[in-house]
Design a protein around this nucleic acid. Structure first.
Length: 471
DNA sequence: ATGTGC
């Protein structure tokens, strides 16, 4: 495929036709500025998107987000919808860390009330386990495993780690109802309590930020956001369990095909197959572990605030909590027909437009809240889903406002960036601060401009980091 | 994204 295959189909939309590669059932649509779209030509990420468009039963088009990058199977930052029934489910189009996602908490007080940021980041670092030896901050018994898998964040509520108000503002109420651990190998079930309530040892983080700019005051108010207000983002997943589920079913699906399939081909399974149904149940269980995990971390954040700031400390309300690696059965308009679609979102979030069924009740009329963390040390965004996104991206937006670092575009390290921007930082890993970062300090990144320009979500607020606890 | 892996 060459540049000639990339056709502009909208101001921020580019399409690679099915003729670009043998076996494609649908085109690939890139939602990006011209620069970002052209940067994808010749990349492994685009090859992976073309392969995703070849999955049996693929519908409409494969969506590539502006910051899509190569992963295993489908690109991180892509949406693949398949016919249900008639199509397939592919774990690698969902992502290994099932229900990796983001929670946003907001306070009713201004960020300026926190005078000692160092003490706060220290308290967060102490209360939220991370690193290779991280263990759950509370006792999680083996018998908790089934409850966590079946009831997600609602398990946390019953154990006193959540408020009713939290549950209302978590996607799906923090609980998917078809989840079960039945039929899974014992070693796999044992993973559930292992790292619950921890940031593990990778790219996850807790970030304290200030609401730096509000683009839509009325929407911001519904989302409990005020200019200058203190907010907290939690980025975490299903605490090793999701990866175990993904690995297990990738193997199950490969074996079911006689083990003959090319290892480079994404493992997949017909939706009607019993193996796919078992996978769906385990997928929901892993998603519930993710919701429970972020709820438990949110509880620890509250404990840390109380420890650092005492009685004068702010109350932390949940704004929203959403998955960015997940698969769901949904209804969508595809080429004028209302169809049941199985929507794989990998590095992509649900961003339903106003009034769409399935949106958490406080936001039903507004539209699906979208949480888009940026690169550590730089801006993050809160957005809201649109009607336009329903037809453009199966009601999806990207999970990150950070663009991929291109060769030759690095300028210094994360440590220098944090120093320059006055961001407090704690991590068990000494190598994190040496991570190379991009040169651009433009607060409205090209990714955010691409999302806004393509119309899949509207910007509500921009967040500026004050302190980060990084895994 | 991660007690990666060729």
């Amino acid at each position: 495929m060459s540049q000639r295959d990339l056709k502009q189909v909208g101001r921020y939309q580019w399409e690679v036709p099915t003729s670009a590669r043998e076996g494609m059932h649908v085109p690939v649509r890139i939602l990006a500025t011209e620069d970002l779209a052209h940067d994808l030509i010749g990349t492994e990420a685009l090859e992976q998107a073309l392969a995703s468009a070849s999955l049996p039963g693929a519908l409409g088009h494969v969506v590539m987000m502006p910051n899509a990058h190569a992963s295993s199977g489908s690109p991180m930052g892509s949406v693949v919808a398949t016919a249900y029934p008639g199509g397939v489910v592919a774990p690698s189009a969902i992502g290994d860390d099932i229900n990796c996602g983001v929670r946003l908490l907001a306070t009713s007080t201004g960020a300026d009330t926190v005078t000692d940021v160092e003490a706060l980041v220290e308290a967060l670092f102490e209360h939220i386990p991370s690193g290779e030896t991280a263990a759950p901050p509370i006792s999680v018994s083996r018998s908790d495993a089934d409850l966590i898998a079946q009831s997600g964040a609602q398990w946390a509520y019953r154990r006193g780690f959540a408020e009713q108000d939290d549950l209302v503002r978590i996607e799906e109420g923090g609980r998917l109802s078809e989840a079960t651990l039945e039929g899974l190998p014992k070693e796999l079930k044992q993973k559930v309590p292992e790292k619950l309530g921890t940031l593990e040892s990778g790219g996850h983080f807790v970030e304290v930020s200030v609401v730096d700019e509000i683009y839509e005051p009325a929407s911001a108010q519904v989302m409990r956001l005020t200019e200058g207000g203190l907010v907290i983002q939690i980025h975490a997943g299903s605490a090793t369990f999701g990866r175990a589920v993904s690995a297990h079913f990738t193997e199950v699906f490969r074996e079911a095909r006689g083990g003959t399939s090319d290892a480079s081909e994404a493992a997949h399974c017909d939706h009607e197959d019993a193996h796919a149904m078992s996978y769906q149940d385990a997928l929901q269980a892993a998603a519930n572990v993710g919701y429970a995990n972020r709820q438990l971390i949110a509880h620890q954040v509250r404990e840390a605030f109380a420890a650092a700031l005492g009685e004068e400390g702010p109350t932390l309300h949940t704004v929203y909590d959403m998955a960015h690696n997940m698969g769901r059965l949904e209804m969508h308009q595809v080429n004028g027909r209302h169809l049941r679609c199985y929507v794989h979102r990998k590095g992509a979030v649900r961003a339903f437009g106003p009034g769409t069924p399935g949106i958490a009740s406080p936001y039903r009329a507004l539209g699906n809240p979208v949480l888009m963390p940026g690169q550590p040390g730089r801006s993050s965004w809160v957005l809201v889903g649109t009607h336009r996104g329903m037809s453009t991206s199966f009601g999806s937006s990207t999970h990150s406002g950070a663009r991929q670092l291109r060769d030759g575009h690095q300028n210094g390290t994360l440590g220098e960036l944090l120093e320059r921007n006055g961001v407090a930082f704690r991590s068990h890993r000494t190598d994190q601060l040496a991570t190379p970062v991009a040169a651009s300090d433009d607060p409205l990144t090209e990714v955010a401009r691409s999302v806004r320009g393509s119309g899949i979500a509207r910007l509500v607020a921009r967040l500026r980091p004050l302190a980060i606890v990084h895994a």
